[in-house]
Write a protein that binds this DNA or RNA. Structure first.
Lengths: 213, 213
DNA sequence: TAGATTGTTAATCGATTAACAATC
DNA sequence: TAGATTGTTAATCGATTAACAATC
């Protein structure tokens, strides 16, 4: 197993952007790419790009740059896209359905094995090939299948309860789309997917821009 | 108009968390709250919380803290939740529908006035009270209504084209949910909503945690 | 009064950027 | 060779944390 240097959130944030950019290049036409080119395209500092790439790749060559194909492979490998984690999702409403079909999470190394909901009319249906089961079964199934990641896409009012079931079943990380502060033991990792924050960032940048113009 | 000090992305990121926490407190029972309490609940440093709050509020009182009600008001005001921006959304598929109904963006100061799609069977329907119109009409409507924010929730392959229409119509900021790098003039602000990054962060933290245990 | 809390100033830490030698 | 590019070391910048006086 390859050991990586420790990585900052900032770098981790940029890696998917590099990947995205590299993949947007015309297939097989750009065999080599320089950190300078990437930096210009994404409006980053070139040394920053080089430092980021140093963490995950075996390096480029002066005057030539990096081998595009290898770089894509190395970033994907670092991000764990090659080695899927299994997950379940609670809530098969609009948001849940979106997540179940959003550009195939499997591409990103996340294998959603089932969805759970409380609504009788949804239980038993299939979304994007995944069965929707009764929420009662969550604890049992996750325990047996050793699922490590739970995704919460239920209304805010039900989020804590479903979170408790997940924690009891032994889930280690929770990706929370409900706008609530979940209470979990320290051993469980929670990542809040914060629409409110994203929107705040957008509208702040916009109003700042308008002030300057 | 109140003038705020300039604010870092980090602080901006935490403000919605404070708001969320404050709103989760039992109504009218906790009249005053200290930065220390907030910091403990959210696992931040207390000085950091105090500095953040100093930017947006008129201050607390030693030994007592801040007036909860006012703090909520001040954060909402700062984030612009009181003063809605109008927006349109392109793409009324699963993702678009989720966004049209996601906990009412209106609460966050975003007023989505219409959705656009190319699919004949969806055009003319109403989602959460918003009309779905033909994408052909986007440019005209946004221009006339002086819409400033466009949300892109179409498949990656169609994103650039719809983005171009938005830019031509005079939209100033684009909230992009499609996993592509959009090409826009410098005058237009793009914020990518990056599922891939969120997922990367989650799975990296998880694997780091597992290594340590 | 005593002690909790605020807000500010100074110290620390970490990320970004600049400078530059090494390489192809 | 000349010049573009890498990767490293040092300088800068900004955010977080520590220390502490002021206040209720």
């Amino acid at each position: 197993m390859m050991i990586y240097k420790s990585i900052s959130t900032q770098t981790l944030q940029r890696l998917p952007m590099y990947l995205n950019y590299l993949k947007s290049l015309p297939d097989n036409q750009i065999l080599n790419i320089s950190a300078t080119t990437i930096a210009e395209a994404l409006k980053f500092n070139d040394v920053q790009v080089r430092k980021d790439l140093a963490i995950i790749s075996s390096g480029g060559r002066p005057k030539i740059g990096y081998i595009t194909k290898n770089l894509i492979f190395d970033i994907e490998k670092f991000l764990g896209y090659d080695d899927a984690d299994s997950a379940v999702i609670a809530g098969a409403g609009d948001l849940g359905r979106t997540l179940l079909s959003y550009d195939g999470f499997s591409k990103y190394g996340l294998d959603i094995i089932a969805a759970f909901d409380v609504r009788e009319d949804i239980i038993g249906t299939t979304i994007n090939g995944k069965k929707v089961l009764s929420s009662d079964k969550l604890k049992d199934l996750c325990g047996r299948m050793k699922v490590r990641i739970g995704i919460i896409a239920v209304p805010a009012s039900e989020a804590q309860e479903i979170c408790n079931s997940m924690v009891e079943s032994g889930i280690l990380a929770i990706w929370n789309f409900a706008p609530v502060n979940l209470n979990v033991p320290d051993s469980v990792l929670v990542q809040n997917e914060d629409m409110a924050f994203s929107l705040a960032k957008l509208s702040k940048s916009l109003s700042k821009k308008l002030c300057l113009n």
